[in-house]
Design a protein around this nucleic acid. Structure first.
Lengths: 256, 256
DNA sequence: GGTTGACCCTGACGCCGCGTGAGGCGGCAG
DNA sequence: CTGCCGCCTCACGCGGCGTCAGGGTCAACC
């Protein structure tokens, strides 16, 4: 009971070209050919194809799949474990990206819907904790971070709040001092400040170093965002870029 | 205050080649050149690059980024929303893959550690609900699905259990009837059966049509798995392939 | 002034997993 | 015999760069 490429393609829900490709690279060669040169796939080939597709679905590159399905002695378990970690990190990255899109989306929405006066009104009303207010809720209410922050703030008491605000004010002071004294944005002092910033955020919601970079990048592309962090009259030109660069350097340091 | 490629690359944490590429495709051309032909990037260029990288981090293709950053009138919100959905579906896919890896990993582990006798003992002990027993816990206990299933079963009463087992038995009967009567694996009858199977699984844990395909594929590559679903003495040759094909057809139908 | 070494340039090919033709043969129904 | 569908083998293309190759430039040191 042999099959042609077209039949196999239909069965396995792949294209004929894909089967040709697998033949070319030696990943799955049909067990035979007709006198006219037509590929003929047998049941065993279908089985092999099934395994190939299974591994492909797991995200393995074709070369590794070839090694796995052809050689039963390969370290399949190791492969799988590595692949699992890879997948998890991908998921984390994607989640970070979703959050980034949410932020971008919400900030765009506000940028469009608010008149300059309203904008001033909003930004003029300096808030020590970003995301703590009605306006903020309209902006971030949809995101997971918001929900996390709500949860964690729910278990804060007044003293916790005061401590947090003090810590943030202290951080801002030291940040400005570092900038004014000409610290390098990728130096240890800046990295330490970035890490402290990340941990302040971490009091409200989970924030990996990579996500932290994404957030700080917003301080560059949308400098108004910075107003939530540092009172406008205290800001310096290039402050957003400094924070962002520091966060990048810190993320790199943390990653190693 | 101008920068060379190398400096910009270091600042933005990208390679020189990347900047060359962006110049080539017109995504980000430096604002000037030295007499010797060196690219010189100004502050505005850095700003632009920041925006480009932000969108890149969001997963946009470079061509779209070029359109977005150059033309302020593009439907950025629409782009972002679409991108968000795309990201979420990617996350779902990856999560499904992680689960698939977990299953593969656990089954491999078992395949290695169990003697044939033990294997028989395990598989001979037919269980109506996969994941309901001590052996199953050792196999699947690490996965999110298992935790979800535990949660949902916790809120089941005896009648719920009975209903579920009845529903599953009924489904198996109809499946075998369909196979014996020669129904097409990608026909409506088979697809309906696949969908019912997916929904039965859905009683225990979330299972998208795509994940469902992944699960059923296991019935082909590891036929022993089928024993958890259909009592061995009732099985037909090709039954796993039939279910898998039906699940594929159903997933395609659901996706449209 | 010459040399060194770090940086810059352009151009071109390579990678992965196929999509998408082009140009031509095989098989089967009418 | 004619059509049409399906099969074959090239062979180029994409996206987002990595990675040479072969050469020019710049600053510093001898």
């Amino acid at each position: 009971m042999d099959y042609t490429v077209g039949q196999v393609a239909a069965l396995a829900n792949v294209t004929v070209r894909t089967l040709h490709h697998y033949d070319e690279i030696g990943l799955l060669s049909p067990s035979g050919r007709t006198p006219a040169g037509y590929r003929t796939y047998g049941e065993a080939d279908l089985d092999q194809l099934h395994r190939v597709l299974a591994y492909k679905e797991l995200g393995f590159p074709l070369e590794e799949i070839a090694a796995i399905v052809s050689d039963p002695d390969t370290d399949t378990m190791g492969h799988l474990r590595k692949q699992r970690d890879l997948l998890l990190s991908k998921v984390e990255r994607l989640r970070g990206m979703v959050v980034a899109v949410d932020r971008e989306l919400e900030s765009r929405r506000m940028g469009v819907t608010l008149t300059p006066e309203e904008r001033f009104e909003v930004f003029g009303d300096w808030e020590p904790v970003p995301g703590y207010g009605e306006e903020a809720e309209r902006r971030w209410g949809q995101t997971e971070q918001w929900r996390q922050a709500q949860d964690r703030m729910g278990s804060f008491d007044k003293e916790d709040f005061a401590r947090m605000q003090t810590a943030q004010a202290e951080w801002v002071r030291e940040l400005l001092a570092a900038v004014d004294e000409g610290s390098a944005a990728d130096g240890e002092r800046a990295m330490d400040l970035a890490e402290r910033h990340r941990q302040l955020i971490g009091l409200l919601y989970d924030c990996s170093p990579a996500q932290h970079v994404g957030i700080t990048r917003m301080y560059v592309s949308e400098p108004e965002q910075l107003n939530f962090l540092v009172s406008p009259d205290l800001q310096r030109p290039g402050l957003g870029a400094f924070i962002c660069a520091a966060a990048q350097a810190n993320a790199k340091r943390m990653g190693e």
